[in-house]
């Protein structure tokens, strides 16, 4: 399985993160997105005429939507991550995968303008981003009321992975995460999952590593 990847792309990170969390093998093929614009070159347009990355290639299968990639990885290696097999659960997962597109457009758009010289109406993108974060905060608060941690059901699903990166990187687009306690707790839970990997702008939880000042047990 080959992932056409860019280290600073939150959408590519979704797929890297998913693979790391479930232990799926992934061969990375770095794309010179910035400054080289390789994604708009002939070779990559032949794979994905939309000119976007990531692109996931597995044999004859070519995927160009990150949500589909998460579903494919989970389907192959960790079907539990697709959610429970009930109509409600399946629908809710789809709901959040679609919601993740709004996060990409708004938070990702603001991030491109603020960080990588992208074009766009920053204020409109930020307003849309804050509206989406408030919606997510309210939903996660509702889950906390029910004793839940994740967006859908009792355990983490591809819905959480799909929404996490652009939310965590909202400050890159000058959108503060300070007002959202439930989002903070959800991100912390995700960053605490075994196999979690970071990307620039999303720090690991250092406290999960052994404290160098405390002698190891049995030492």
């Amino acid at each position: 399985m080959i992932l056409y990847d860019y280290i600073l792309s939150p959408s590519c990170y979704k797929v890297r993160l998913m693979a790391a969390l479930i232990g799926a093998p992934l061969e990375l093929r770095p794309v010179d997105f910035h400054p080289g614009k390789e994604h708009l070159g002939e070779d990559l347009l032949a794979l994905n005429p939309a000119g976007s990355i990531p692109i996931l290639v597995d044999g004859d299968l070519i995927l160009s939507e990150s949500a589909a990639m998460l579903a494919y990885l989970a389907g192959q290696y960790a079907p539990d991550w697709l959610g429970e097999e009930t109509a409600t659960s399946r629908a809710m997962v789809q709901q959040w995968l679609a919601f993740a597109h709004r996060l990409t457009a708004a938070l990702g758009g603001a991030r491109l303008v603020e960080m990588l010289h992208g074009q766009g109406d920053l204020e409109a993108l930020q307003t849309a981003g804050i509206a989406a974060l408030r919606e997510l905060e309210a939903a996660l608060f509702k889950r906390r009321l029910d004793g839940g941690t994740w967006l859908v059901g009792e355990s983490i699903t591809i819905a959480d992975v799909a929404c996490f990166p652009y939310v965590a990187l909202a400050p890159d687009g000058s959108i503060s995460l300070d007002p959202y306690p439930s989002i903070r707790l959800w991100m912390r839970a995700l960053r605490g999952q075994a196999g979690f990997v970071e990307m620039p702008g999303i720090h690991r939880r250092h406290e999960l590593a052994p404290d160098p000042l405390t002698p190891a047990e049995g030492a």
């Binding site: 860019y6 280290i7 600073l8 770095p30 794309v31 010179d32 910035h34 400054p35 080289g36 390789e38 960080m115 400050p171 890159d172 620039p200 702008g201 720090h203």
Partner: peptide
């Protein structure tokens, strides 16, 4: 590869961005 070299340096520098801000 050139792309790997670019990505490595972008990775390093972008890790600093949230500190600087």
């Amino acid at each position: 590869s050139m792309t790997d070299l670019i990505h490595f340096q972008q990775l390093i520098f972008l890790q600093d961005r949230s500190i600087l801000e």
